[in-house]
Design a protein around this nucleic acid. Structure first.
Lengths: 220, 220
DNA sequence: CGTCTGCTGACTGTTGACATTTGACAAGTG
DNA sequence: CACTTGTCAAATGTCAACAGTCAGCAGACG
């Protein structure tokens, strides 16, 4: 449970990238001993949400543009495989219904200007897609990489989010296209739509000036 | 370092699938305290090499046929993405040279009947492919799934390995075909060859009678 | 003045011991 | 005889304390 709270703190942006974490400090703030803290840190390091070297304090990673591109490369690999698997195993219809629910939710949230809800249903869409594959390993790998994604988009401003969603309102959104391709069993089309979707996301995320491989911010 | 040794013990098959591990026992056998043991177990659990539930002893997983299929589905996803990335970034030639070195090594090892070496170079081939992608996340995910693969093939007998390699000697091996497709920049062909390669592997591994979802063996 | 050496402080890695929970065995009961 | 219940050993989760290591700094030396 301490792992969960720490993970949320990192993802939500409560801990700025570059921050260095001390085990004793965390232990005090969580009211537990260093043992559970160490376990939580280990897990988060293996999930890629923290970086740690021996005898050095763990730190929240600062994601370079290369990292963002790499994260989305990994997501392309995972979600493409999931889409193929879903279509191949004939679960297109069922999956489409779940996917479409999130597409609609995203549309209405967007109309209402609730960008938090848009992000939430965006994540949910992709999670549903991978879960529909039924592959435990795909899901396991996805859960770690989606955490890193949240680390990227967590800092997105409403303006940037709006820019990303542009042209998605009428019925031409890439999410909608992906779900329809899956419904129709069009594997090649789904893969192409996924790749385009992620390429767009990468260009939005890497277009801003920050996020370069600048030196980490100072601590305390 | 204790993680490494434990990992090897599991992969090499020194610890039979279904075996339940006690922290105190491991601590005694490794000559360290329970702290490092717990950390090692946590890592291996997250790598999928061990299963653990709260307040329950961790155990070496017994892989069902579904697990084997799932592992290879994950590998297909990862290595397909790696191959695409390698071709797209124009590193086909360079990668081919590294790949071909392992193909030749496999051929000669096969001729010599050294199945251990065949397995080693097989693993090395796929590791090189993923490493050539330059994607840290692809490599990270691959390293965990390749461990599970070693867990599968670790128990392979020479006879079964030979059967798997059948028809690979003259120059028609699927490894060779994959590497050549990459050299030629034939993305679709490489993906197809990879898929066929893994499908073959799955049918070999799931054809034997054991490996079903039988109840775990007794402990101690 | 620049560089190197030795020290201080803090933090991590590890240890042994304590509290809590689980699974099983045995006794009791309808 | 089957089922429930009480008890107990063993294993896990947690804690506070000890030893080893690294970053930073003051001072000495060329």
């Amino acid at each position: 449970m301490v792992t969960e709270r720490l993970r949320e703190d990192i993802i939500e942006g409560a801990l700025a990238p570059g921050t260095q974490l001390s085990e004793v400090e965390l232990a005090k703030s969580f009211g537990v001993s260093r043992g559970p803290i160490r376990e939580a840190l280990q897990r988060l390091i293996q999930e890629g949400l923290l970086r740690g070297e021996p005898h050095r304090r763990v730190s929240v990673p600062v994601l370079t543009k290369e990292d963002v591109a790499d994260i989305y490369l990994a997501r392309t690999a995972l979600e493409s495989a999931a889409a193929q698997s879903v279509i191949a195993s004939g679960k297109s219809e069922e999956t489409f219904r779940q996917l479409d629910r999130n597409v609609r939710a995203m549309d209405s949230a967007e109309a209402a200007g609730d960008w938090e809800a848009v992000k939430r249903h965006d994540l949910e869409f992709h999670t549903v897609l991978v879960a529909a594959s039924g592959s435990r390993r795909l899901q396991r790998m996805f859960s770690t990489v989606i955490s890193e994604t949240r680390l990227c988009v967590g800092a997105l401003t409403a303006e940037e989010a709006r820019h990303h969603q542009e042209g998605e309102s009428p019925g031409e959104g890439t999410h909608r296209k992906i779900s329809e391709m899956i419904r129709d069993g069009n594997t090649a089309g789904a893969l192409e739509a996924l790749k385009k979707h992620f390429d767009d996301a990468v260009s939005v995320l890497t277009s801003r000036d920050s996020e370069s491989d600048a030196e980490p911010a100072s601590t305390r």
